[in-house]
Simulated assay, not measured.
Amino acid sequence: MGLVRGFDRERGPLPQPLPPAGGEPRTAWGENCPPQSAHPLPQAGGDRGEGPRPFREGRPTRQARELRLNPTDAERRLWRALSRRQIAGVRFNRQVPVGPYIADFAARSEKLIVEVDGGQHDERAAYDEGRTRYLEAQGWRVIRFWNNEVLGNLEGVVQTIERALAEKPSPSPSRLREGSLLG
C-alpha cells in the first residue's frame, strides 16, 4: 500500500542492491549510482588478509603457527604435562609471540615463560641471554630446560615449574595503592 518504487512512505527509502563484483559497466546501474570503489563492502574475494596490518607488524605469528604444527619430541612431551591446566590450574599456551620472540610455553596470567632448549642453544648462549633480558624487561619470568631433562626427568621439570608458579614475585611498591600494605 504505502510502497512507491524504491520508497516506503512509512520507513523512508528502501536499500538499493550493490552492483555486482566484477566488470559490469557503470551505465548498467545508472548515472546516479556511486562508483564501485565507493561501496563500503569489499568485492568478492576482497582484501581479506591483504594489505598492511600495523598492529601485527613485527610479530612472528606465522612462524609461531608453524612451530606449533611441528613440535620437537621434548616440546610434545612437556605440552602433554602443561596442557589442560594440569599444573596448579594454570593455563599455558604453546609458541606464543612476545614482542619479536616466540616463547615455547607461556602462562600469560602468571607471566611465566618455559623454554625447552636443544643442543643448538648451547652455541647461541649470547642470543638466549639477550632474549631472556628482553622478556624479563617486559615483566616475564623465564625458566629453561634442556631437551634431555624433559625427556629423561619430566617429573622433575614439572616440579620445578610448579615451584616457579608458587613463587610469585611480590608486586613492586610503586604499583601498590596507598594504604594497601597494612591492610
Rank of each mutant, 00 (worst) to 15 (best):
K111P: 01
R77Q: 09
T61K: 15
V158P: 08
I143F: 13
R144A: 07
A166T: 02
F92A: 00
R59H: 15
F92S: 04
K168G: 09
H121K: 06
I102L: 11
K111L: 06
L78W: 06
V90T: 06
P71C: 10
T160P: 12
E115R: 10
W140P: 03
V90E: 00
E136H: 00
G89D: 02
L151Q: 06
Y134G: 07
E129A: 15
L112G: 02
V96A: 07
R133W: 05
Q95P: 14
G99Q: 05
G152T: 06
D128R: 09
G152W: 07
P60G: 12
G156D: 05
S172G: 11
P97S: 03
E167A: 14
F145R: 03
R76C: 10
R94D: 06
N153H: 13
R68I: 08
V157N: 11
N153G: 12
V90Q: 06
P100K: 04
Q95D: 05
T72D: 07
R141W: 02
P100M: 04
E110K: 05
W79K: 06
A106W: 00
A64Q: 13
A103M: 03
L82W: 07
N93L: 12
E66P: 10
E136M: 06
V116L: 09
A164I: 03
V158W: 09
L151E: 09
D117G: 10
D73I: 05
V98L: 14
D73G: 09
R85Q: 13
P171F: 14
L165V: 00
G156K: 04
I113C: 00
E155Y: 05
N147W: 08
T61E: 14
I113W: 01
R85C: 14
G139M: 01
T132Y: 05
V114F: 03
N153D: 14
E149P: 11
T160E: 15
R131T: 05
E129S: 12
L82G: 09
A88K: 06
R84V: 02
V98H: 07
Q138R: 08
G99E: 06
Y127S: 11
D73Y: 13
L165K: 01
R80K: 14
R108T: 05
R65V: 13
E66F: 14
D117M: 08
V142P: 05
S170C: 08
L151S: 09
A126S: 12
R84C: 07
S172H: 13
V116M: 09
G119Q: 15
G152V: 03
R62D: 15
L135A: 02
A164P: 04
R77A: 09
L151H: 10
R59P: 12
E155F: 04
R65S: 14
A107Y: 03
L112D: 02
R65W: 15
R77D: 03
E129D: 15
I87Q: 00
F145I: 04
V142M: 00
R94S: 11
L82N: 08
R144H: 12
R108L: 12
D104S: 03
G99T: 02
A106N: 00
L154K: 09
R80W: 13
G99D: 05
E167Q: 13
V150A: 04
E155N: 13
D122I: 08
